[in-house]
Nucleic acid binder design. Sequence first.
DNA 1: CGCCTGACGTTGC
DNA 2: AGCAACGCCAGGC
Length: 111
Amino acid sequence: MAPEPGFFDLVYEVVKLIPPGRVSSYGAIAHYLGSKGSARMVGWAMNAAHNRPEVPAHRVVNRQGLLTGRHHFATPDTMAEKLRAEGIVVKDNQVQNFEQVFWDPGKELDL
DNA sequence: CGCCTGACGTTGC
DNA sequence: AGCAACGCCAGGC
């Protein structure tokens, strides 16, 4: 048990809150955590999220809606496959209708 | 203990 | 409008 949640756990909480059929961006999560400038940390946290099956890291893409972290999954196609399974249209490693499926924590959570 | 890396984002040119 | 460099922050070695 980790009595003191680090940046990772914090990111996991937000990512786990992402509803199916929706995607979020590293910057949006980072901004929600207060570390807007540290969008990289969100991605880094995702790397550790591999140990957290409850964390749908495949729902987290970059600002372009591009599946930048697909290569970190079991297979480069796993990310797109999961997103597609949720109804998200992924074309050429890029989420179509990105702003349509975009889920902002600080906005959807009515922060 | 210090340097490097890392799934991004923004601003400048 | 496209390309390049820098900045952030924390974990790993």
